[in-house]
């Protein structure tokens, strides 16, 4: 008698999760045709919050890179819309092109940032963001530090709102899908090993810097796409200080830690929570910040793994599983094989 060893990836859970996500996506995509635009306009913010939280989670939760400078790429994405819009592209095309270009720009920036580790990396990314802000405000064509509007934009508010909604939804779905596909690949396992112990990952032949750089660039592109959505929704940028503000990083960290770091679902939960707190309390002055602080304290004390982390720990529930499981089956067949096929 011998045994077969199979490596499973929770395919049923993943299939159910993907099918549910697809249905939700279809429902959300047709929402502007059914619901009042005042509702769907608000959801644009939810979508870019989901994008930002997922990207920060990919960076910190899976690759162990604690950045407080992702606002650099949010700002570049927003200002990239002006650059390409001024050259004849539509605002939406400009957002997509800007995201790709920001990804390219992130490559040399990563060489600079990766010279630092831990807390130094975090502060270094913030410094990079501030430097980029100071560079951007030098250009008169970009408003010289006073902000500016998108010049070539459709005047029809219904069309504008609908397209902006679809773009924000598309960006959020793309960001979540990219995270899921990436983390279910062998690349995802390599990434998590780097997060746990870079030296050990290196000693097993994993290209540590290359792997981290890929994630950093994806994170930059996602944040740039969110930045372009923010810019398009507001038909411009009110001030470079706001779009390059460190508060974006603070909110990303808040959403991910409250929702559950190191899970696909956690940042979505965190974004939902933050979205509703922001919707109902953002006009409450200082109380708004007090409420955010109280939520953070409660989560730290009672749900240190975050909302989804707690759900996962209690009921072993994962809509988008990325972990591996080895199953050993005893049988009469002498041919032993190690397969990666899913069951």
């Amino acid at each position: 008698m011998s045994s077969n060893i199979q490596i499973l990836r929770s395919p049923k859970k993943a299939a159910y999760g993907s099918a549910g996500a697809l249905l939700l996506f279809v429902a959300l995509a047709i929402a502007p045709k059914i619901l009042d635009q005042s509702i769907t306009n608000e959801w644009v913010k939810l979508f870019y919050l989901v994008t930002l939280a997922s990207m920060w989670n990919l960076l910190a939760g899976y690759a162990g890179m604690i950045s407080v400078g992702q606002q650099a790429f949010i700002g570049l994405g927003a200002y990239g819309v002006f650059v390409f819009n001024d050259h004849g592209f539509s605002a939406y095309e400009s957002g997509i092109i800007a995201s790709i270009v920001v990804g390219v720009v992130a490559v040399p920036i990563s060489f600079l940032a990766f010279r630092l580790r831990g807390g130094y990396f975090a502060i270094g990314t913030w410094v990079i963001a501030e430097t980029l802000r100071l560079i951007i405000i030098r250009f008169p064509s970009l408003g010289s530090g006073k902000g500016r509007n998108i010049q070539n934009y459709t005047r029809d508010p219904i069309l504008r709102n609908t397209y902006t909604y679809w773009m924000a939804l598309g960006v959020a779905i793309f960001a979540l899908s990219a995270c899921f596909i990436l983390l279910r690949s062998r690349f995802g396992l390599a990434l998590q090993s780097i997060r746990d112990n870079e030296v050990a990952a290196n000693s097993l032949g994993i290209k540590v810097d290359f792997t981290k750089r890929v994630v950093y660039v994806i994170g930059a592109m996602g944040c740039a796409a969110a930045g372009s959505v923010i810019c398009i929704q507001s038909i411009g940028v009110a001030s470079p200080n706001a779009i390059f503000g460190v508060s974006y990083s603070a909110f990303m960290i808040f959403m991910v830690l409250i929702g559950g770091i190191g899970t696909i679902e956690g940042p979505v939960m965190g974004a939902l929570l933050y979205f509703f707190v922001d919707k109902y309390f953002s006009q409450s002055g200082l109380w708004y910040l007090v409420i955010l602080g109280v939520i953070a304290i409660i989560a730290t004390l009672f749900f240190p793994k975050g909302i989804w982390g707690e759900i996962n720990a209690r009921w072993n529930l994962s809509l988008f599983p990325v972990s591996y499981q080895v199953k050993i089956e005893n049988n009469q067949n002498d041919s032993i094989h190690l397969s990666k096929k899913e069951k």
């Binding site: 045994s3 060893i5 490596i7 062998r186 396992l189 390599a190 998590q192 090993s193 997060r195 746990d196 112990n197 030296v199 050990a200 990952a201 000693s203 097993l204 032949g205 994993i206 190191g262 972990s323 591996y324 499981q325 080895v326 050993i328 032993i336 190690l338």
Partner: peptide
């Protein structure tokens, strides 16, 4: 220097990252 957030089996699978062929696989390790 194990990967402490991963399971034992996931630690072993990270070890196979090089994709080199040979006598060692999960069965022979077990």
């Amino acid at each position: 220097r194990l990967f402490t957030s991963l399971s034992v089996e996931e630690n072993l699978l990270v070890g196979a990252a090089t994709g080199r062929k040979g006598p060692w696989n999960l069965k022979s390790i077990f």
